[in-house]
Write a protein that binds this DNA or RNA. Structure first.
Lengths: 226, 226
DNA sequence: TCGCGCGTTCACAATGGCTTCACAATCGTA
DNA sequence: TACGATTGTGAAGCCATTGTGAACGCGCGA
């Protein structure tokens, strides 16, 4: 579930925004000033930040500027009604959206979802990956080996895609877990073994002598390239 | 190279938008009122129009209305108003997206690209879509499966049409929502499930073992197999 | 004002994938 | 070769995802 950091110096606003976002199914962290906001970004690694422009001391723009040096987490600016032209320039810094107070809860949630969705889409890389006679079609989530079409589960596809994007590079189980589920929660690294097994069963002609997904003893797995 | 017409009576806004779109690789034409905007549309045949709602004399809605009589060029509405009802009016008139001032340039560029992408797909779209023994008549919004005629609601039709235009491609719920209601609005993604259920009930011989609208676990839905 | 159709939301059941575990097989090294 | 470490594998439980009926809200026309 997505985590959102809400930053505002007015407790009432924080409370309100938190309630609505929580109700919409997000995990919410809060901060009341720029300093603790930056600290919280490092601590809770939010997927999005709702940031009041008019913070005391370090204001919203300062925070955004500092933020951009170390992260590209999406930011939604929150502000009392102000002059347009000034803020237009200020927002060049990379805020992803902009909401003026007073705002409707529906609008806040809607924009939050919209920005998150856009951010996700931006991360998608190549659509077609080809190595040897294996092809991965990302939008279709489809794999073919030679002539055969192959059905993979989402996790299996992600593991294989991660390996295939950099053929020959060895990935540890931890890295593959990261690719699959994000840094968020740790699970048993050997779950990856199970996925590898299933991938091989579907992909390889002879799963006991794999030609595509190879084991690197004591390290992890790689795609081809001995 | 895509050409974009920017229409606003505030020179500062025009300047800003032009800079950003130019920088993003678009060719930009400008106009400062409704009359010259309409003239410019005929002259420069833009691929997209960024249109301020609050123009003097002929306002944005008037321009859109006039425009729609002779062209279906995509329009992004730009406005200071935030009322939701305004959004509805704008979108119903044929605006493709809606941005409230003040906005982030980043967002403007992103939405411009998104609308252009959608418009491209829409243009290559056949009026008649046929896959297997299912036929979609887009202008009439009619569907037939085999001999049976089928009645779908507007939203159901849109969902089905989106899937059927690219058979085999997997669409996430978010993508289907986009196709149905545009980026401007958001709702619970699982609303799509409800539409899928209703489509299946009407379309499939056996809704529990669908042959046309298939589920891709953990991702979304697709139409048939490629 | 009242239904009516449509889209959305909700709660709960059904389904399928992910993880875990135990043990077998294999690898590297002494 | 022998031993411990690492990996392969099948089965089982848990949990996320999906299916589904019902209820709600909203706009529209009677």
């Amino acid at each position: 579930m997505k985590t959102i950091l809400v930053v505002d110096d007015e407790p009432k606003i924080v409370q309100l925004v938190r309630d609505y976002l929580t109700h919409a199914g997000f995990t919410v962290a809060t901060a009341s000033d720029g300093q603790s906001a930056l600290a919280s970004v490092r601590a809770s690694k939010p997927d999005l930040i709702v940031l009041d422009l008019g913070l005391p001391q370090l204001d919203g723009l300062d925070v955004t500027r500092a933020l951009r040096r170390e992260s590209n987490v999406p930011v939604i600016m929150l502000t009392a009604r102000v002059e347009e032209s000034d803020k237009l320039v200020g927002l060049e810094l990379g805020a992803d959206d902009y909401i003026t107070k007073p705002f409707s809860p529906k609008e806040l949630v809607a924009r939050t979802r919209a920005v998150l969705r856009r951010a996700e889409n931006a991360n998608t890389t190549e659509e077609l990956i080809r190595i040897a006679d294996v092809t991965l079609d990302t939008p279709r989530m489809k794999v073919t080996a030679g002539e055969r079409g192959i059905e993979l589960t989402p996790t299996e596809f992600q593991v294989l895609a991660t390996l295939a994007r950099q053929p020959g590079r060895v990935f540890t189980r931890a890295q593959l877990l990261d690719a699959v589920q994000g840094v968020a929660f740790e699970s048993y690294e050997r779950a990856i073994d199970a996925h590898i097994k299933n991938i091989r069963r579907k992909l390889e002609t002879n799963p006991h002598q794999p030609r595509y997904v190879l084991t690197v003893y004591g390290v992890g797995y790689k795609f081809c390239e001995p």
